[in-house]
Design a protein around this nucleic acid. Structure first.
Lengths: 222, 222
DNA sequence: GATTAGCGGATTGTTCAACAATATGTACGA
DNA sequence: TCGTACATATTGTTGAACAATCCGCTAATC
Protein backbone atom coordinates (compact mmCIF):
# COMPACT_ATOMS: atom_id res chain seq x y z
CA UNK A 1 0.00 0.00 0.00
CA UNK A 2 2.54 2.56 1.07
CA UNK A 3 4.96 4.13 -1.35
CA UNK A 4 7.97 2.97 0.60
CA UNK A 5 6.78 -0.60 0.79
CA UNK A 6 8.58 -1.81 -2.30
CA UNK A 7 11.90 -0.29 -1.34
CA UNK A 8 11.54 -1.92 2.01
CA UNK A 9 11.00 -5.36 0.60
CA UNK A 10 14.16 -4.94 -1.44
CA UNK A 11 16.17 -4.13 1.67
CA UNK A 12 14.29 -6.45 3.95
CA UNK A 13 16.15 -8.04 6.79
CA UNK A 14 18.92 -5.54 6.34
CA UNK A 15 18.06 -4.06 9.69
CA UNK A 16 14.86 -2.14 9.52
CA UNK A 17 15.97 0.56 11.91
CA UNK A 18 18.95 1.55 9.80
CA UNK A 19 16.81 1.45 6.71
CA UNK A 20 14.22 3.79 8.22
CA UNK A 21 16.95 6.18 9.32
CA UNK A 22 18.46 6.22 5.84
CA UNK A 23 15.10 6.84 4.19
CA UNK A 24 14.40 9.79 6.45
CA UNK A 25 17.93 11.08 5.99
CA UNK A 26 17.49 10.96 2.22
CA UNK A 27 14.09 12.64 2.28
CA UNK A 28 15.36 15.43 4.47
CA UNK A 29 18.46 15.92 2.36
CA UNK A 30 16.32 16.05 -0.77
CA UNK A 31 14.19 18.77 0.75
CA UNK A 32 11.14 16.55 0.65
CA UNK A 33 10.83 17.02 4.39
CA UNK A 34 11.32 20.71 4.99
CA UNK A 35 13.04 22.13 8.10
CA UNK A 36 10.75 22.64 11.03
CA UNK A 37 8.13 20.18 9.84
CA UNK A 38 6.91 17.69 12.37
CA UNK A 39 7.52 13.97 12.02
CA UNK A 40 4.46 12.33 13.51
CA UNK A 41 5.15 8.89 14.88
CA UNK A 42 1.76 7.61 13.91
CA UNK A 43 1.64 8.72 10.29
CA UNK A 44 5.29 7.99 9.61
CA UNK A 45 5.23 4.52 11.11
CA UNK A 46 2.11 3.80 9.11
CA UNK A 47 3.41 5.18 5.83
CA UNK A 48 6.75 3.44 6.16
CA UNK A 49 5.14 0.23 7.26
CA UNK A 50 7.20 -0.14 10.42
CA UNK A 51 6.24 -0.18 14.05
CA UNK A 52 6.27 2.95 16.17
CA UNK A 53 9.03 1.39 18.24
CA UNK A 54 11.52 0.95 15.44
CA UNK A 55 10.68 4.38 14.04
CA UNK A 56 11.45 5.73 17.48
CA UNK A 57 14.84 4.04 17.43
CA UNK A 58 15.57 5.51 14.02
CA UNK A 59 14.69 8.90 15.48
CA UNK A 60 17.30 8.34 18.17
CA UNK A 61 19.90 7.79 15.48
CA UNK A 62 18.96 10.89 13.53
CA UNK A 63 18.84 12.91 16.71
CA UNK A 64 22.42 11.87 17.36
CA UNK A 65 23.29 13.22 13.94
CA UNK A 66 21.45 16.45 14.83
CA UNK A 67 19.45 16.13 11.65
CA UNK A 68 16.33 16.11 13.74
CA UNK A 69 15.32 17.77 16.99
CA UNK A 70 13.25 16.12 19.68
CA UNK A 71 11.12 18.23 21.99
CA UNK A 72 9.94 16.11 24.93
CA UNK A 73 6.28 15.21 24.75
CA UNK A 74 5.94 17.31 21.62
CA UNK A 75 7.57 15.18 19.02
CA UNK A 76 10.52 15.29 16.66
CA UNK A 77 10.99 17.93 14.02
CA UNK A 78 13.29 18.36 11.09
CA UNK A 79 16.09 20.58 12.36
CA UNK A 80 15.71 24.13 11.21
CA UNK A 81 19.05 25.89 11.60
CA UNK A 82 19.03 29.61 12.17
CA UNK A 83 21.62 32.31 12.65
CA UNK A 84 23.20 30.77 15.72
CA UNK A 85 23.50 27.37 14.05
CA UNK A 86 25.19 28.94 11.04
CA UNK A 87 27.69 30.63 13.35
CA UNK A 88 28.39 27.28 14.99
CA UNK A 89 28.81 25.60 11.62
CA UNK A 90 31.46 28.09 10.66
CA UNK A 91 33.17 27.88 14.02
CA UNK A 92 33.69 24.21 13.27
CA UNK A 93 34.69 24.71 9.66
CA UNK A 94 37.10 27.55 10.48
CA UNK A 95 38.80 25.23 12.93
CA UNK A 96 39.11 21.90 11.18
CA UNK A 97 39.39 22.84 7.53
CA UNK A 98 42.43 25.13 7.83
CA UNK A 99 43.94 22.67 10.28
CA UNK A 100 43.54 19.90 7.72
CA UNK A 101 45.17 22.07 5.08
CA UNK A 102 47.99 23.11 7.37
CA UNK A 103 48.84 19.81 8.97
CA UNK A 104 47.20 17.19 6.79
CA UNK A 105 48.85 15.03 4.16
CA UNK A 106 48.08 16.30 0.68
CA UNK A 107 48.75 13.03 -1.09
CA UNK A 108 48.76 12.90 -4.87
CA UNK A 109 45.49 10.98 -4.90
CA UNK A 110 43.78 13.51 -2.66
CA UNK A 111 44.92 16.42 -4.82
CA UNK A 112 43.83 14.63 -7.97
CA UNK A 113 40.45 13.92 -6.41
CA UNK A 114 40.07 17.58 -5.49
CA UNK A 115 40.87 18.69 -9.02
CA UNK A 116 38.44 16.20 -10.46
CA UNK A 117 35.75 17.58 -8.16
CA UNK A 118 36.60 21.10 -9.25
CA UNK A 119 36.13 20.07 -12.87
CA UNK A 120 32.68 18.82 -12.02
CA UNK A 121 31.95 22.06 -10.21
CA UNK A 122 33.02 24.14 -13.21
CA UNK A 123 30.87 22.04 -15.51
CA UNK A 124 27.94 22.51 -13.15
CA UNK A 125 28.56 26.25 -13.06
CA UNK A 126 28.64 26.48 -16.83
CA UNK A 127 25.47 24.41 -17.02
CA UNK A 128 23.90 26.63 -14.38
CA UNK A 129 23.02 23.67 -12.21
CA UNK A 130 22.88 24.90 -8.64
CA UNK A 131 22.34 21.49 -6.99
CA UNK A 132 25.32 19.98 -8.80
CA UNK A 133 27.47 22.89 -7.71
CA UNK A 134 26.31 22.41 -4.14
CA UNK A 135 27.15 18.72 -4.28
CA UNK A 136 30.56 19.38 -5.75
CA UNK A 137 31.30 22.01 -3.16
CA UNK A 138 30.31 19.62 -0.41
CA UNK A 139 32.48 16.86 -1.84
CA UNK A 140 35.39 19.24 -2.10
CA UNK A 141 35.34 20.34 1.50
CA UNK A 142 34.85 16.81 2.67
CA UNK A 143 37.98 15.85 0.79
CA UNK A 144 39.80 18.74 2.45
CA UNK A 145 38.93 17.41 5.88
CA UNK A 146 39.91 13.98 4.66
CA UNK A 147 43.49 15.22 4.50
CA UNK A 148 43.64 14.66 8.24
CA UNK A 149 43.09 10.94 7.71
CA UNK A 150 40.56 10.96 10.51
CA UNK A 151 37.18 9.32 10.08
CA UNK A 152 35.71 11.08 13.10
CA UNK A 153 36.51 14.46 11.62
CA UNK A 154 35.11 13.39 8.28
CA UNK A 155 31.89 12.37 10.00
CA UNK A 156 31.70 15.65 11.86
CA UNK A 157 32.21 17.51 8.59
CA UNK A 158 29.50 15.36 7.06
CA UNK A 159 27.06 16.40 9.75
CA UNK A 160 27.99 20.01 9.37
CA UNK A 161 27.55 19.92 5.62
CA UNK A 162 24.19 18.19 6.03
CA UNK A 163 23.16 21.03 8.30
CA UNK A 164 24.32 23.48 5.65
CA UNK A 165 21.95 21.85 3.20
CA UNK A 166 19.16 22.38 5.69
CA UNK A 167 20.07 26.04 5.90
CA UNK A 168 19.69 26.34 2.15
CA UNK A 169 16.39 24.50 2.23
CA UNK A 170 15.17 26.85 4.93
CA UNK A 171 15.98 29.90 2.83
CA UNK A 172 13.03 30.98 0.75
CA UNK A 173 15.18 32.21 -2.12
CA UNK A 174 18.28 30.18 -2.84
CA UNK A 175 20.72 32.46 -4.64
CA UNK A 176 23.66 31.04 -6.53
CA UNK A 177 25.68 30.90 -3.39
CA UNK A 178 28.37 28.59 -4.66
CA UNK A 179 29.23 30.30 -7.92
CA UNK A 180 31.82 32.58 -6.37
CA UNK A 181 33.66 29.84 -4.58
CA UNK A 182 34.58 27.47 -7.38
CA UNK A 183 37.65 29.51 -8.26
CA UNK A 184 38.65 29.82 -4.64
CA UNK A 185 38.65 26.05 -4.34
CA UNK A 186 40.82 25.79 -7.43
CA UNK A 187 43.26 28.29 -5.99
CA UNK A 188 43.42 26.29 -2.79
CA UNK A 189 44.53 23.20 -4.68
CA UNK A 190 47.15 25.23 -6.52
CA UNK A 191 48.58 26.42 -3.22
CA UNK A 192 48.71 22.89 -1.93
CA UNK A 193 50.43 21.64 -5.06
CA UNK A 194 53.01 24.37 -4.56
CA UNK A 195 53.50 23.28 -0.97
CA UNK A 196 52.35 26.66 0.34
CA UNK A 197 50.29 25.19 3.14
CA UNK A 198 50.37 28.16 5.48
CA UNK A 199 49.19 30.50 2.77
CA UNK A 200 46.51 28.02 1.78
CA UNK A 201 45.25 27.80 5.35
CA UNK A 202 45.16 31.57 5.74
CA UNK A 203 43.28 32.03 2.50
CA UNK A 204 40.86 29.27 3.43
CA UNK A 205 40.10 31.01 6.70
CA UNK A 206 39.40 34.25 4.89
CA UNK A 207 37.27 32.32 2.42
CA UNK A 208 35.21 30.79 5.23
CA UNK A 209 34.81 34.17 6.89
CA UNK A 210 33.45 35.63 3.68
CA UNK A 211 31.10 32.70 3.11
CA UNK A 212 29.74 32.96 6.64
CA UNK A 213 29.18 36.69 6.28
CA UNK A 214 27.38 36.25 2.98
CA UNK A 215 25.20 33.48 4.35
CA UNK A 216 24.35 35.46 7.48
CA UNK A 217 23.49 38.43 5.31
CA UNK A 218 20.98 36.38 3.37
CA UNK A 219 19.52 35.00 6.58
CA UNK A 220 19.11 38.39 8.20
CA UNK A 221 17.70 39.82 5.02
CA UNK A 222 14.97 37.19 5.00
CA UNK B 1 15.25 -5.18 44.65
CA UNK B 2 17.74 -3.72 42.23
CA UNK B 3 20.45 -1.37 43.30
CA UNK B 4 19.50 1.24 40.78
CA UNK B 5 15.86 1.25 41.81
CA UNK B 6 16.20 4.07 44.34
CA UNK B 7 18.10 6.35 42.00
CA UNK B 8 15.47 5.75 39.43
CA UNK B 9 12.63 6.73 41.71
CA UNK B 10 14.45 9.94 42.50
CA UNK B 11 14.78 10.79 38.84
CA UNK B 12 11.43 9.37 37.82
CA UNK B 13 9.60 11.00 34.98
CA UNK B 14 12.80 12.69 33.93
CA UNK B 15 12.75 10.68 30.75
CA UNK B 16 13.68 7.13 31.45
CA UNK B 17 15.67 6.63 28.28
CA UNK B 18 18.04 9.50 29.01
CA UNK B 19 18.36 8.31 32.59
CA UNK B 20 19.34 4.80 31.51
CA UNK B 21 21.88 6.19 29.07
CA UNK B 22 23.43 8.37 31.76
CA UNK B 23 23.62 5.48 34.23
CA UNK B 24 25.41 3.29 31.71
CA UNK B 25 27.66 6.15 30.70
CA UNK B 26 28.64 6.68 34.32
CA UNK B 27 29.24 3.00 34.99
CA UNK B 28 31.43 2.67 31.95
CA UNK B 29 33.38 5.81 32.78
CA UNK B 30 33.91 4.53 36.32
CA UNK B 31 35.34 1.31 34.98
CA UNK B 32 32.53 -0.66 36.56
CA UNK B 33 31.69 -1.98 33.11
CA UNK B 34 34.99 -2.95 31.56
CA UNK B 35 35.78 -2.62 27.83
CA UNK B 36 34.68 -5.58 25.77
CA UNK B 37 32.11 -6.79 28.27
CA UNK B 38 28.73 -7.63 26.88
CA UNK B 39 25.62 -5.70 27.85
CA UNK B 40 22.85 -8.25 27.85
CA UNK B 41 19.45 -6.77 27.15
CA UNK B 42 17.70 -9.19 29.41
CA UNK B 43 19.82 -8.83 32.53
CA UNK B 44 20.33 -5.10 32.16
CA UNK B 45 16.69 -4.30 31.58
CA UNK B 46 15.84 -6.42 34.58
CA UNK B 47 18.49 -4.95 36.87
CA UNK B 48 17.69 -1.37 35.87
CA UNK B 49 13.99 -1.99 36.11
CA UNK B 50 13.18 -0.73 32.63
CA UNK B 51 11.72 -2.43 29.63
CA UNK B 52 13.88 -3.98 26.98
CA UNK B 53 12.55 -1.44 24.52
CA UNK B 54 13.71 1.63 26.39
CA UNK B 55 17.04 0.01 27.16
CA UNK B 56 17.41 -0.55 23.46
CA UNK B 57 16.78 3.12 22.79
CA UNK B 58 19.39 4.06 25.36
CA UNK B 59 21.77 1.75 23.53
CA UNK B 60 21.09 3.67 20.34
CA UNK B 61 22.14 6.87 22.09
CA UNK B 62 25.34 5.40 23.48
CA UNK B 63 26.13 3.85 20.14
CA UNK B 64 25.93 7.30 18.61
CA UNK B 65 28.48 8.43 21.16
CA UNK B 66 30.63 5.45 20.22
CA UNK B 67 30.85 4.49 23.88
CA UNK B 68 29.34 1.18 22.94
CA UNK B 69 29.56 -1.07 19.91
CA UNK B 70 26.66 -3.01 18.46
CA UNK B 71 27.27 -6.19 16.54
CA UNK B 72 24.11 -7.21 14.68
CA UNK B 73 22.35 -10.18 16.20
CA UNK B 74 25.16 -10.52 18.71
CA UNK B 75 24.51 -7.68 21.11
CA UNK B 76 26.12 -4.51 22.32
CA UNK B 77 29.51 -4.38 24.01
CA UNK B 78 31.45 -1.75 25.86
CA UNK B 79 33.82 -0.30 23.30
CA UNK B 80 37.30 -1.63 23.66
CA UNK B 81 39.70 0.68 21.84
CA UNK B 82 42.88 -0.79 20.47
CA UNK B 83 45.89 0.50 18.60
CA UNK B 84 43.96 1.77 15.60
CA UNK B 85 41.48 3.62 17.80
CA UNK B 86 44.30 5.29 19.68
CA UNK B 87 45.77 6.45 16.39
CA UNK B 88 42.40 7.86 15.39
CA UNK B 89 42.07 9.60 18.75
CA UNK B 90 45.34 11.36 18.22
CA UNK B 91 44.55 12.23 14.64
CA UNK B 92 41.58 14.14 15.99
CA UNK B 93 43.45 15.70 18.87
CA UNK B 94 46.42 16.71 16.72
CA UNK B 95 43.99 18.53 14.44
CA UNK B 96 41.60 20.36 16.72
CA UNK B 97 43.71 21.12 19.77
CA UNK B 98 46.50 23.01 18.02
CA UNK B 99 43.89 24.68 15.83
CA UNK B 100 42.08 25.87 18.95
CA UNK B 101 45.33 27.19 20.37
CA UNK B 102 46.31 28.86 17.12
CA UNK B 103 43.02 30.45 16.13
CA UNK B 104 40.87 30.36 19.25
CA UNK B 105 40.22 33.19 21.65
CA UNK B 106 42.27 32.85 24.81
CA UNK B 107 40.04 35.00 26.97
CA UNK B 108 41.11 35.93 30.47
CA UNK B 109 38.49 33.63 31.98
CA UNK B 110 39.65 30.69 29.89
CA UNK B 111 43.27 31.20 30.84
CA UNK B 112 42.35 31.56 34.50
CA UNK B 113 40.31 28.37 34.30
CA UNK B 114 43.24 26.54 32.74
CA UNK B 115 45.59 27.70 35.47
CA UNK B 116 43.14 26.68 38.14
CA UNK B 117 42.95 23.25 36.56
CA UNK B 118 46.73 23.04 36.50
CA UNK B 119 46.84 23.79 40.21
CA UNK B 120 44.51 20.90 40.81
CA UNK B 121 46.68 18.69 38.63
CA UNK B 122 49.79 19.63 40.58
CA UNK B 123 48.05 18.95 43.84
CA UNK B 124 46.95 15.57 42.52
CA UNK B 125 50.48 14.82 41.38
CA UNK B 126 51.91 15.68 44.78
CA UNK B 127 49.25 13.55 46.43
CA UNK B 128 50.01 10.75 43.98
CA UNK B 129 46.37 10.47 42.95
CA UNK B 130 46.32 9.11 39.43
CA UNK B 131 42.56 9.40 38.86
CA UNK B 132 42.55 13.06 39.93
CA UNK B 133 45.43 13.75 37.56
CA UNK B 134 43.54 12.06 34.77
CA UNK B 135 40.45 14.12 35.47
CA UNK B 136 42.42 17.33 35.59
CA UNK B 137 44.19 16.50 32.35
CA UNK B 138 40.89 15.80 30.71
CA UNK B 139 39.39 19.06 31.96
CA UNK B 140 42.43 20.94 30.72
CA UNK B 141 42.27 19.69 27.18
CA UNK B 142 38.54 20.20 27.08
CA UNK B 143 39.12 23.82 28.02
CA UNK B 144 41.69 24.08 25.25
CA UNK B 145 39.17 22.97 22.67
CA UNK B 146 36.68 25.34 24.29
CA UNK B 147 38.84 28.20 22.99
CA UNK B 148 37.17 27.67 19.63
CA UNK B 149 33.82 28.60 21.15
CA UNK B 150 32.25 25.65 19.37
CA UNK B 151 29.99 23.24 21.21
CA UNK B 152 30.24 20.60 18.49
CA UNK B 153 34.01 20.49 18.82
CA UNK B 154 33.72 20.35 22.59
CA UNK B 155 31.38 17.39 22.26
CA UNK B 156 33.72 15.64 19.86
CA UNK B 157 36.59 16.22 22.27
CA UNK B 158 34.39 14.86 25.04
CA UNK B 159 33.84 11.66 23.10
CA UNK B 160 37.48 11.33 22.34
CA UNK B 161 38.49 11.82 25.96
CA UNK B 162 35.88 9.29 27.06
CA UNK B 163 37.45 6.84 24.65
CA UNK B 164 40.84 7.66 26.16
CA UNK B 165 39.49 6.63 29.53
CA UNK B 166 38.42 3.33 28.01
CA UNK B 167 41.93 2.84 26.71
CA UNK B 168 43.30 3.26 30.21
CA UNK B 169 40.69 0.90 31.61
CA UNK B 170 41.64 -1.66 29.00
CA UNK B 171 45.30 -1.52 29.97
CA UNK B 172 46.15 -4.10 32.57
CA UNK B 173 48.76 -1.94 34.25
CA UNK B 174 47.99 1.75 34.39
CA UNK B 175 51.29 3.58 34.74
CA UNK B 176 51.39 7.19 35.86
CA UNK B 177 50.83 8.35 32.36
CA UNK B 178 49.87 11.91 33.16
CA UNK B 179 52.69 12.83 35.49
CA UNK B 180 54.97 14.05 32.74
CA UNK B 181 52.39 16.25 31.13
CA UNK B 182 51.40 18.54 33.95
CA UNK B 183 54.32 20.85 33.32
CA UNK B 184 53.72 20.81 29.60
CA UNK B 185 50.20 22.04 30.19
CA UNK B 186 51.53 24.81 32.41
CA UNK B 187 54.01 25.83 29.74
CA UNK B 188 51.21 25.95 27.20
CA UNK B 189 49.30 28.46 29.28
CA UNK B 190 52.43 30.56 29.67
CA UNK B 191 52.84 30.69 25.92
CA UNK B 192 49.24 31.73 25.50
CA UNK B 193 49.57 34.45 28.12
CA UNK B 194 52.58 35.75 26.21
CA UNK B 195 50.58 35.73 22.99
CA UNK B 196 52.92 33.22 21.40
CA UNK B 197 50.16 31.22 19.80
CA UNK B 198 52.14 29.71 16.95
CA UNK B 199 54.82 28.46 19.28
CA UNK B 200 52.16 27.11 21.61
CA UNK B 201 50.48 25.24 18.79
CA UNK B 202 53.75 23.74 17.58
CA UNK B 203 54.70 22.61 21.08
CA UNK B 204 51.26 21.17 21.61
CA UNK B 205 51.59 19.11 18.45
CA UNK B 206 54.92 17.78 19.60
CA UNK B 207 53.39 17.06 22.99
CA UNK B 208 50.56 15.08 21.41
CA UNK B 209 52.99 13.15 19.24
CA UNK B 210 54.96 12.15 22.29
CA UNK B 211 51.86 11.16 24.23
CA UNK B 212 50.61 9.02 21.36
CA UNK B 213 53.95 7.30 21.02
CA UNK B 214 54.13 6.58 24.73
CA UNK B 215 50.59 5.24 24.79
CA UNK B 216 51.16 3.06 21.75
CA UNK B 217 54.33 1.74 23.33
CA UNK B 218 52.40 0.65 26.39
CA UNK B 219 49.73 -0.96 24.22
CA UNK B 220 52.16 -2.88 22.08
CA UNK B 221 54.11 -3.95 25.15
CA UNK B 222 50.99 -5.48 26.66
C1' DG C 1 40.53 -39.18 15.81
C1' DA C 2 39.40 -35.02 13.35
C1' DT C 3 36.08 -32.57 10.73
C1' DT C 4 31.72 -31.34 9.35
C1' DA C 5 26.50 -31.46 9.57
C1' DG C 6 22.66 -30.73 11.97
C1' DC C 7 20.02 -29.75 16.14
C1' DG C 8 18.33 -27.15 20.36
C1' DG C 9 18.70 -23.27 23.31
C1' DA C 10 19.49 -18.58 24.01
C1' DT C 11 19.64 -13.77 22.40
C1' DT C 12 18.58 -10.19 19.41
C1' DG C 13 15.27 -7.72 16.06
C1' DT C 14 10.70 -6.32 15.36
C1' DT C 15 5.82 -5.94 16.09
C1' DC C 16 1.50 -5.19 18.51
C1' DA C 17 -1.59 -3.52 21.99
C1' DA C 18 -2.24 -1.10 26.01
C1' DC C 19 -1.81 2.55 29.51
C1' DA C 20 0.20 6.78 31.79
C1' DA C 21 1.74 11.43 31.20
C1' DT C 22 1.82 15.51 28.76
C1' DA C 23 0.48 19.00 25.34
C1' DT C 24 -3.11 21.04 22.24
C1' DG C 25 -7.56 22.82 21.16
C1' DT C 26 -12.20 24.16 22.37
C1' DA C 27 -16.15 25.56 24.76
C1' DC C 28 -17.72 27.73 28.67
C1' DG C 29 -18.15 31.29 32.22
C1' DA C 30 -16.78 35.70 34.39
C1' DT D 1 -12.02 39.75 26.04
C1' DC D 2 -9.71 36.88 29.06
C1' DG D 3 -8.92 32.92 31.77
C1' DT D 4 -10.35 28.22 33.17
C1' DA D 5 -11.79 23.48 32.74
C1' DC D 6 -12.55 19.75 29.96
C1' DA D 7 -11.98 16.60 25.81
C1' DT D 8 -8.75 15.01 22.52
C1' DA D 9 -4.54 13.66 20.41
C1' DT D 10 0.30 12.54 20.78
C1' DT D 11 4.21 11.01 23.01
C1' DG D 12 6.65 7.92 26.61
C1' DT D 13 6.94 3.44 28.43
C1' DT D 14 5.71 -1.22 29.23
C1' DG D 15 4.91 -6.22 28.53
C1' DA D 16 4.42 -10.07 25.79
C1' DA D 17 4.86 -12.37 21.63
C1' DC D 18 7.11 -14.18 17.41
C1' DA D 19 10.74 -14.50 13.67
C1' DA D 20 15.55 -14.50 12.63
C1' DT D 21 20.04 -15.32 13.87
C1' DC D 22 23.91 -17.02 16.44
C1' DC D 23 26.25 -20.29 19.74
C1' DG D 24 27.53 -24.67 21.66
C1' DC D 25 26.75 -29.46 21.47
C1' DT D 26 26.04 -33.95 19.72
C1' DA D 27 26.44 -37.13 16.16
C1' DA D 28 27.53 -38.85 11.74
C1' DT D 29 31.09 -39.30 8.23
C1' DC D 30 35.60 -39.89 6.38
Amino acid sequence: MTIAEDEKIAAEHAHTTAWVASVLRARIAAGQLTPGSKLSEQSLSASLGVSRNTLRQAFATLEGESIVTRIPNRGVFVASPGVEEVREIYRVRRTIEPAAVLWGRPTAEALDAMESIISRAKAARDAGSVPDMANANQAFHETVVGLTGSDSLRELMDRVLAEMRLVFHAMASAPDFHTHYVDRNAQLVQRLRAGENELAAAELRAYLDAAEAELLGHLEGA
